[in-house]
């Protein structure tokens, strides 16, 4: 039983199968960029990619991702020459983060929508489901505009 995690196959111990993917990532695999915000799939802080689709890892048991490819923020830039995915680069240029806690979910959600070729309205609709309390949305909007070739 394995899961492909950021390009590497890792074994899933039997007793982790029913645990939420979020805690498997954080506490078993030691990947702590994916964060807990609400535990009920509403806030988006825990979004990761499963086979290139955004999923809320607090709602997904590890069993459901066996044999699939999970990408977290740590693995998003794999293969990029400067170690940054275009979304991450846009986030740096727009100086988006304040506290930073929700930003992994923001970036992973934006990246998934772009990877899937969503139109601008679809990208924004996806981002509307990711909460930020610091109020970084105006800068997220700026970064998205640049990524969507509008700015």
């Amino acid at each position: 039983m394995t899961v492909r995690l950021n390009q590497t196959n890792i074994a899933v111990p039997q007793d982790w199968l029913e645990e939420p993917l979020l805690w498997f990532l954080r506490d078993h695999a030691g990947l702590r960029a994916t964060r807990f915000g609400c535990g009920v799939g509403v806030c988006g802080a825990c979004v990761v990619h499963v086979d290139r689709t955004a999923m809320r890892s607090c709602q997904v048991p590890v069993r459901d991702v066996l044999g699939r490819h999970v990408v977290t923020l740590e693995g998003l830039a794999a293969g990029q020459p400067d170690g940054l995915h275009p979304v991450q680069r846009a986030w740096i240029e727009a100086a988006v983060p304040q506290c930073g806690y929700c930003q992994s979910g923001q970036i992973m959600t934006a990246a998934a929508a772009l990877i899937q070729g969503q139109p601008p309205a679809g990208v924004r609709a996806a981002m509307d489901q990711v909460m930020c309390r610091c109020g970084t949305q105006p800068r997220i909007a700026r970064a998205l505009a640049r990524l969507l070739g509008e700015g």
């Binding site: 702590r32 807990f36 923020l73």
Partner: peptide, 23 residues
Amino acid sequence: ATAPDLVRDLVTGRATPFAGDVH
């Protein structure tokens, strides 16, 4: 003062700075 290096750590997941990241 804009510290792009610190922003980079946050947006790449290199930084695990929160209390819940302590193990």
